[in-house]
């Protein structure tokens, strides 16, 4: 896995979540949890209402 808990990452794809949060391209956030099996992360993006699950391929380092 590329990132660890606490790392700063940026969104590379616009994401719309069911709670109404829309994460714009390049929004920074910090890694809260790592999911090895599904190659994904739980991220708290700036300005978001809750943490969101994002695939590793849709993230880049800050």
């Amino acid at each position: 896995m590329k990132y660890s808990i606490g790392d700063c990452v940026k969104n590379t794809r616009v994401k719309k979540y069911s709670n109404g949060d829309i994460i714009a391209l390049g929004t920074p956030g910090d890694v809260r949890k790592v999911y090895k099996a599904s190659k994904s992360y739980s991220i708290m993006f700036q300005g978001a209402q809750a943490v969101h699950r994002v695939l590793e391929k849709d993230l880049e380092a800050c």
Partner: peptide, 21 residues
Amino acid sequence: IAVGTIASDDEAILKTNIKSF
């Protein structure tokens, strides 16, 4: 997805990856 932690766009790939392991 219902509680907002997973984006609906990621459903298919998450399913594939979790099922695979």
